[in-house]
Design a binder for these strands. Structure first.
Lengths: 232, 232
DNA sequence: TGTATTTTTCTTGTCGACAAATAAAATACA
DNA sequence: TGTATTTTATTTGTCGACAAGAAAAATACA
């Protein structure tokens, strides 16, 4: 694989961030399977740098729970905890509500163009049936709404939840290729309208409904898979 | 200062955790002032180890927002963001509600003795007028309730919020030494009762009231200080 | 042939040293 | 004396090497 086959001229502090961002994306897009071993020397060779900056990137990833470190022994990509998916869904629904509500309450005029921009990106991805782009732009859309709510603690947790959900959605879209996401586009438009009108209650309600609908779809899929697994 | 004047025999992976825990406590108890510079070589000398494990501990602390690093330049203890305290309070109130509610909903019998234990520790700290112990045991009490709710995403955010609040409460108790915490002890007892009775609505209501009361007190103090600052 | 023990291997954890980047100090110049 | 430029100093970022720990492999022994 020709990853970093560009100029070996790297700036001083940039290596860590690069490794961090790249590994993070690969993990969240399921390009690296959960449970896969993460080898420091291998990464050092791949990125053509010493183990030290690699290690720092791994420590950061471990801090976000994306990888797990066994003391003195291997490091691996965190598994998806299917048994506790409901806790993830609970947290997601609440954060959808809270961030949308806060955005309606305290957004500024300059926030709306940004949100609309991601909304259009998402619509374009749906039209193009580009699954990875759909997932990424959907996350960006809701993250932008959260930013407009201006509570860093909520946006921080929400981002993390959306990241974790990114892996699940990746599985979801791998299994089923349905055309329903158009519905999500419409719901997004409604949410924007509620935020713009500063209708806090409507924003809350729409955010909740939007989240619960996605969760229900995913749960339906996984229960189907569960039954399949048992049947085999 | 004779910090680590014990045996130089350290186990292999223990250094990082030790430095991390110690620095974290010092920061949260305001033993290191916000804005203070954090020097790697100094810490390396103090803990008698190389800069590498120190660095790893600092990366973890930075990941939690407890320290801030300027690229290629100094590292310092994060300042308390007084201008955005309301976002912290908003998040805290919501998490008090959610964790108490969830605890009432899905706690197990073995959780209650743990919660009661911290409740008694807190009562003892109040009786002894030990400010630092009061803050620490109060955090432990609510963290235990959150654990009983069994949603790792909520407990994670809640712990972080309580940590940040620890620094503020430290300021609070430095300024005013009032005897009202007995009221908190009583409220804690009510909360435990609601959880035990699995009364979800009552737990929610009590958690919210408890949080809002603390927030109101702290806000009153800071608004007083603000006026004082302006007057000077 | 099966089990206990030793040896090997592989990965991580730690170290000391050097290079780069920035701020502070010193110097030159008007 | 005030400002621009060079030099020094200090702190971080990166490197290569070595040691420790744990699993796997190999060996010894019954």
């Amino acid at each position: 694989m020709s990853d970093t086959d560009s100029l070996p001229e790297r700036k001083r502090g940039s290596g860590v961030k690069m490794v961090y961002d790249l590994l993070r994306d690969e993990i969240l897009d399921l390009r690296i399977a959960p449970g896969s071993p993460v080898d420091e020397v291998q990464l050092a060779e791949r990125f053509k740098m010493s183990r030290t900056p690699i290690r720092e990137a791994l420590v950061r990833l471990a801090g976000e729970g994306l990888i797990e470190t066994l003391p003195n022994r291997s490091t691996m990509v965190s598994n998806i905890d299917f048994l506790n998916l409901n806790t993830l869904f609970d947290a997601l629904v609440l954060m959808y509500r809270v961030t949308t509500r806060l955005a309606a309450q305290s957004h500024r005029p300059e926030d709306l163009p940004i949100i609309r921009g991601f909304h259009e990106d998402y619509a374009a991805a749906v039209a193009a049936r580009d699954t990875l782009a759909m997932i990424a732009t959907n996350v960006a859309f809701h993250a932008a709404i959260a930013e407009a709510g201006r509570n860093p603690y909520f946006t921080g947790l929400f981002r993390r939840l959306l990241d974790e959900a990114r892996r699940i959605l990746r599985l979801y879209y791998q299994s089923y290729e349905e055309q329903f996401p158009q519905r999500f586009v419409d719901e997004h438009a409604e949410i924007i309208a509620a935020i713009e009108a500063r209708d806090v209650e409507a924003a809350d309600r729409l955010g909740k409904a939007h989240a619960e609908q996605i969760v229900a779809q995913v749960q339906k899929l996984f229960s189907r898979n569960d039954r399949l697994d048992i049947a085999l």
